[in-house]
Design a protein around this nucleic acid. Structure first.
Lengths: 246, 246
DNA sequence: AGGCTAAAGTTGTATATGTAACTTGATGGA
DNA sequence: TCCATCAAGTTACATATACAACTTTAGCCT
C-alpha cells in the first residue's frame, strides 16, 4: 500500500498552494477516477494516512469526512472507509435518470428503440451541438416504458467526437444517459421546461391523444467545454409529474 | 448578545443525543429561520461562541464551517460570519418570483386581482395546509401580466395563523409571495410540475384557448414546521418556459 | 463445538494550542 | 490632508491528544 501511494501528497500536482486536506482529497479522488481504487475498495484508514503522509489524524479525518459528505466515499464506524458506488446526477434537482426513477418505484423499465442512425447537421442542430453545418451526428429515438406503459419519449442527438461508438450500443440494457455519462462526465447542463401538445408521431409512440398536454424538457449537457448531447424528453402530462423539494 | 443567545445550546431542544456541533448548527439555523437573525446579520465569532457556550473553538469552527458549506451562512476571513441571502430556489428548478423575473426582462409587471376572500377548509385543503377540516383559510386568485399580457395565474391558499392580515394587503404593489416571505421566512418547499389543459375559467382570465397546454406548478412552503401557503401557478405554454442551468 | 470475552483497529467527537492570512480601524508622520 | 504602518479581531489551517462508539477477530472457557 505504501508503495503505490507514496505520491499521494506529491507537490507536483499543480496545487502547491492548496491546503493539505484539499490535496489529500484530490489525490484520493484521482485514485478513484482512474479506477486504481474501484468501487468498494478499502481506503487507507486515518492512522495509515497519518503514517504514510506524515499528516495529523485530524487532517486526514477532515479530508475523508468531506469526501464522505460529497458522496465520493462511505465511512462506517469501526470498519473503515470505502469507495462509494457511482453517484448519479444531483438528487436535489428533481430531474433524474428515468430508469433509476422507475426502478425505485418498484416498476419494470423497458426500452423501445424507435430509431438510431447517423444524420447530417442542419443549422439548428449544428448550433445546438456546437458543430459545423454538414457535420455528422448520431440520432436516437427511444421510448421508456414503466410496466409497459410509455412514460417518456427520448429524442436525442449525440456528438460523435465524444461517443464515436454510440450507435453500436445495446440500448435495451443501457440507457443512452448511462452510457454517455460513463464515457463523459457531465460538467454543465442547460435545461428548459415547457408545456406542449404532442406531434402526431409522438402521440403514436406514446399511445396518447392529440389533446394530451405534455411536459417537454430540452436539455444540453457539456463535458470539458464540449457539447456531449442535446435531448428532447417528452412526458405525457397524465402519467408523469416532476417533483422537487428543497 | 449574550442575553438573547443564552439558550443557544439549550438541552431541551429535543436533541440531547446529538453532537455539540450539530446542536449549535440547528440552533443557529433556528435563529435564522425565525428571522431573529435576518439576512446579512452578523453571527457571533468563533471566540464569542467559545465564551458564550463554553465549547472549544474547533467545535465552533466546525459548526460554522459546515453551515457555510451548506450555504446557510457566508464567512469572510478577517471580517466574520453572516447570514447568507436566501438562494434556495435558484439551483432547484429556476422557479423564482414572477415579478422579479418580469422586471429583469425590462417589462412592466401588473397584477390583476380576481378574488380575495376567506374560505372554509374542506378535506383536501385542510390536508394541504395541515389544518383541521372546517378551519378558515384565505383564498386569493391573481393574474400576473407582463406588458399587459397574462403570463401567470396564481391561485393561492394561506394559513391565517401565520398571516392573519393577508386579505388586507394591497396586491397591486406587493405580490403575495413578497408579503408572505417577509413575515415568514421559508424553511422548506415542496413542488410538483406537470402539464395540464386549462379549465374554462382559467382560459378566460389568461386569455388563451382551451387547447393551449399549460405548465402547472403546485407548491407548498413551510416556515418553522408549519405550512404557510399552498399555491397553484399556471403558465400558458406558448408564453412561458422554465430554465434551469447547473 | 459453541459461546462469551477481551483486544485491536476504526471512525466520531471534543478540546487545547499554535500559526498564517485577511480586514478593519486607529495612529502617527510627512 | 493623505498615506503608511501597526494593532486588534477574525477566519483558515494544522497538530497533538483524549475518549467514546462500533466492528471484527482472536482466544479462552465451558
Amino acid at each position: 500500500m505504501l508503495n503505490e501511494d507514496a505520491g499521494l501528497l506529491a507537490k507536483d500536482a499543480g496545487e502547491r498552494g492548496a491546503p493539505i486536506y484539499e490535496r489529500m482529497k484530490t489525490q484520493i479522488r484521482a485514485k478513484i477516477e482512474t479506477g486504481e481504487w474501484p468501487v468498494n475498495h478499502r481506503i487507507p484508514s486515518e492512522n495509515e494516512l497519518v503514517d504514510m503522509l506524515g499528516v495529523s489524524r485530524m487532517t486526514a479525518n477532515r479530508a475523508l469526512r468531506e469526501l464522505a459528505n460529497e458522496g465520493v466515499i462511505t465511512r462506517v464506524q469501526g470498519k473503515g472507509s470505502f469507495v462509494a458506488p457511482k453517484k448519479r446526477s444531483a438528487p436535489a434537482l428533481g430531474v433524474r435518470n428515468i430508469a433509476d426513477e422507475i426502478l425505485e418505484r418498484g416498476s419494470v423499465h423497458r426500452i423501445e428503440l424507435i430509431l438510431a442512425q447517423s444524420e447530417t447537421c442542419g443549422h439548428e442542430l449544428a448550433a445546438a451541438l456546437e458543430l459545423d453545418v454538414g457535420a455528422q451526428s448520431f440520432h436516437s429515438v427511444i421510448v421508456h416504458n414503466e410496466d409497459d406503459v410509455p412514460i417518456q419519449l427520448e429524442d436525442r442527438f449525440v456528438n460523435p467526437a465524444i461517443a464515436p461508438d454510440y450507435l453500436e450500443q445495446d440500448f435495451s440494457h443501457t440507457t443512452p444517459n448511462a452510457f454517455l455519462t460513463s464515457i463523459a462526465p457531465i460538467a454543465k447542463t442547460e435545461q428548459f421546461i415547457e408545456a406542449v401538445l404532442p406531434q402526431p408521431w409522438e402521440c403514436k409512440v406514446l399511445a396518447i391523444a392529440r389533446s394530451e398536454p405534455c411536459i417537454l424538457i430540452r436539455r444540453r449537457t457539456w463535458s470539458q467545454d464540449r457539447v456531449v448531447t442535446t435531448v428532447r424528453l417528452l412526458y405525457p402530462g397524465s402519467r408523469y409529474r416532476l417533483q422537487s423539494n428543497f
